[in-house]
Design a protein around this nucleic acid. Structure first.
Length: 508
RNA sequence: GCCGCGUUGGUCAAUCGGUUAAGACGCCUCCCUUUCACGGAGGAAUGACGAGUUCGACUCUCGUACGUGGUACCA
């Protein structure tokens, strides 16, 4: 009988907000749901230097928007609370001390200056970054080198200290990654990582292990950048006596910059003009707002769809997936090993597909606030629905609805007169003047009557239809775009149509 | 520097020793539409390099190159 699956998302205050972080959450969620397990949200709020006000709520909001709802977490209490690291401080310390007790960790009293001096003194071209490890720890101020009485004396004097793991010598640390298979590391190459900081807060290394154990996590997903420190975590599970409970690891491939190389970062979004956050992120420290996919007009369905396909593939040609379909199709075996470059064009394509497949009424609900917020008088919901039916599929982002539909509500602010003028003639002038009269005498104003009226007059005047439709369109919408002209004329009504024609005629 | 991980078109990617090496985005051409999109048809474009194993290698092994991550009292 297998234990039920429990995955978690433990976002860092800043990193967890990026595309890569949301994808980690998504994969963790998909995997858990696929196996009828639960998904736990754990919040790292211990780092005072980087954590910002509102980050926790922001993470919850992003996940909620995506439809990834945690079963347990700060806002969904489960059996393993608390879920905020700041509220678990004592727990971590207890285990750190247990490790010291068993000889797998030790106190280190070195000041930052002393550490820097050591690194400076030992630095050489062949070893640019000396480590705190077996080769150096006997020269430092720690409980391994110091006599027992000296250590106790320092502790009693309340000299600041950290607790470091004592890496073993000449051991090969092996573990299995669900994506990459067996991974080996030599213990000599890993340094004595700090587990408990001087302020008594745990480092990530201690926190993940303790939390994953206590919260009974069975499968741990994280970014590939954690691979180098995995041996520390493996050893911790071992030293704490929890070998039997260690989760299975999956180190997800990185999401890389579209141009050049390197991990995708917030700056790339600013620089290249696309979002890297799920939702608008206001940083109170810099007083800056970074735009998110949501606010730019992406649908949550499209967002998780494109994110899921960045590093995973079903093996079939299907590319459009709902969350439920992703849950059904997802498998770790098909997660890629290599990093993927983010492609904003493809991201927009996903959104466009989702808009095209969306019911008009649903689109209308999303479009209404966008128009209203920009000061557009939408007349009535019935009218809006007709407009939306005509322009929905022309929107790549939901926000495009404004540019695509504004001429249905207002006389175009700018009219491309030049395009009309270059092919203008007296005959056309006469045609449009007579058209006004014909429209006026029209008893019914509908698609068929408008079209017949227009075409009849064109035939009468012996002018090609195309020569007339182009200027007509520009008169009504301001430029060469939009759905069928007669559809537009029908919707905006006789009065508006006549008025727009007159306005432009006067300008020519 | 050292260590880890990776490498199929510009991008996302299928292939799990035998294929004319899928498909999608983007790009180009044509059709449709007398606008612009949508839609349809077509096109250009890919196995980093070198050895080895094998009847046969994109696929397995090794080396090289390149990329990327780590090397903090950051995550």
């Amino acid at each position: 009988m297998s234990q039920s699956v429990r995955t978690r998302f433990a976002p860092s205050p800043t990193g967890g907000l990026h595309l890569g972080g949301v994808r980690t959450a998504l994969y963790s969620y998909l995997f858990a749901k696929k196996h009828n397990g639960s998904f736990v949200l754990r919040v790292e709020d211990t780092d005072q230097t980087r954590f910002v006000e509102g980050a926790e709520q922001y993470i919850v909001d992003c996940l909620t928007w995506c439809g990834i709802i945690p079963d347990e977490g700060p806002h969904h209490p489960g059996d393993y609370a608390p879920y905020r690291q700041s509220e678990r401080k004592e727990i971590y310390k207890q285990y750190a001390l247990q490790l010291v007790e068993s000889g797998h960790a030790y106190y280190a009293f070195d000041t930052p200056e002393e550490l820097e001096k050591m690194r400076e003194d030992l630095k050489s071209p062949s070893n640019p970054s000396p480590q705190y490890d077996a080769s150096t720890r006997m020269h430092m101020k720690n409980s391994i080198r110091l006599l027992k009485e000296e250590t106790e004396s320092l502790l009693q004097q309340n000299i600041p200290y950290v607790i470091r793991i004592k890496m073993p010598e000449n051991e090969t640390i092996t573990f299995t990654d669900m994506i990459r298979g067996e991974i080996k590391n030599e213990s000599n190459l890993v340094d004595d990582k700090v587990l408990l900081k001087a302020d008594c807060m745990p480092t990530y290394h201690l926190a993940v292990v303790v939390d994953d154990y206590l919260m009974k996590i069975t499968h741990a997903f994280r970014g590939e950048e954690w691979l180098p420190s995995a041996p520390v975590h493996i050893l911790l599970w071992h030293y704490l006596g929890w070998d039997q409970h260690m989760p299975q690891w999956a180190h997800l491939p990185l999401i890389l910059k579209p141009d050049g190389h390197g991990k995708l970062s917030k700056r790339d979004g600013d620089r290249l003009g696309f979002p890297v956050f799920a939702m608008d992120w206001y940083d109170p420290k810099t007083n800056e707002t970074t735009h998110g996919f949501k606010e730019l007009g992406f649908l949550p369905e499209a967002f998780i769809n494109l994110l899921a396909l960045l590093g995973w593939n079903s093996g079939e040609e299907k590319e459009i997936f709902t969350l439920d379909e992703l849950v059904a199709s997802f498998s770790m075996e098909r997660v890629h090993k290599g990093g993927a470059k983010f492609d904003y064009e493809k991201a927009k394509w996903f959104n466009h597909e989702w808009i095209k497949h969306m019911p008009i009424t649903h689109f209308e609900i999303l479009a209404k606030p966008i128009l209203v917020n920009r000061g557009v008088d939408i007349m009535s919901d019935e009218y809006l629905e007709k407009v939306v039916a005509l322009i929905k599929d022309r929107c790549t982002l939901i926000n495009d609805v404004y540019e695509q539909s504004i001429y249905f509500f207002q006389t175009p602010a700018k009219v491309d007169l030049e395009s009309i003028q270059t092919k203008w003639s007296d005959e056309k002038n006469i045609f449009f003047n007579e058209l006004l009269n014909s429209f006026d005498s029209l008893s019914e104003w509908n698609l068929a009557s408008i079209e017949t009226c227009f075409k009849t007059l064109a035939t009468e005047k012996n002018i090609k239809l195309g020569e007339l439709q182009a200027p007509f369109r520009i008169m009504l919408v301001g430029g060469k775009f939009g759905p069928g002209v007669f559809n537009i004329a029908e919707l905006i009504g006789k009065e508006n149509t006549v008025e727009r024609i007159k306005t432009v005629l006067n300008l020519l």
